[in-house]
Each structure stands twice: as structure tokens, then as C-alpha cells.
């Protein structure tokens, strides 16, 4: 597990799903399940970070439009 991972949202999400599946399937040693659980926590945090970032950008974009003013004021036109 490296500390700063450049995982895309989809990579993190898919890996998280597989981690939970393996945890739920059982049949692991205590150490394996602890490692998996920790990995799952980390992946969930990465997913949450992506989603929070996306939400923040969306919110910023919506806020920007409200302060834009008249449509004619938009630069490229």
C-alpha cells in the first residue's frame, strides 16, 4: 500500500467492491482480514475524496453562474 496513490475514482471504487466481497466471503487469516479492512478504509477514503472534490467543483460552477450576470456578459460571445 503506498501512501499517496494516484487511483482514479473508478479504480478505487472497483477495488473497494472487491475488498468488501473478499472480507464478506471470509476464510481469511486474522492478519489478512485486518490488512484487507485497512485497505478498504483507505479506498473508501479515496472514493470519498474524489466525490467531495467533484461535488465542490460542481457547486463552485453553479455559484459562478449565478454571479455571471446577463448572458451577454460572457466573454467568448
Amino acid at each position: 500500500m503506498t501512501d499517496r496513490e494516484a487511483l482514479s475514482y473508478e479504480q478505487a471504487r472497483d477495488e473497494l467492491a472487491s475488498v468488501v466481497k473478499r472480507l464478506e466471503a471470509g476464510g481469511l487469516t486474522l492478519e489478512q482480514s485486518l490488512d484487507l479492512w485497512q485497505r478498504g478504509e483507505k479506498l473508501a477514503a479515496i472514493c470519498a475524496e474524489w466525490l467531495d472534490g467533484a461535488r465542490a467543483r460542481l457547486t463552485a460552477a453553479m455559484a459562478a453562474r449565478e454571479t455571471d450576470g446577463a448572458p451577454g456578459a460572457e466573454a467568448p460571445f
Binding site: 475514482y9 471504487r13 473497494l16 467492491a17 468488501v20 472480507l23 464478506e24 486474522l30 482480514s33 485486518l34 479492512w37 478498504g40 478504509e41 473508501a44 472514493c47 470519498a48 466525490l51 467533484a54 461535488r55 460542481l58
Partner: peptide, 27 residues
Amino acid sequence: MRGWLDREQSWLDATRSRPALADPVRE
């Protein structure tokens, strides 16, 4: 985009609340 975010967020919330992740003490 908002719909996608909401969908993904609920999936993530559901996954995080699964006992396997939410309650590691149980293991």
C-alpha cells in the same frame, strides 16, 4: 453530474456501512 454523484455517494455510503468495513471489531 449531480445524479451521478448522488448515485456514487449512496453506493459508497452503503459499502462503508457494510459490517465488513463498518465493524471490523466483529471479525
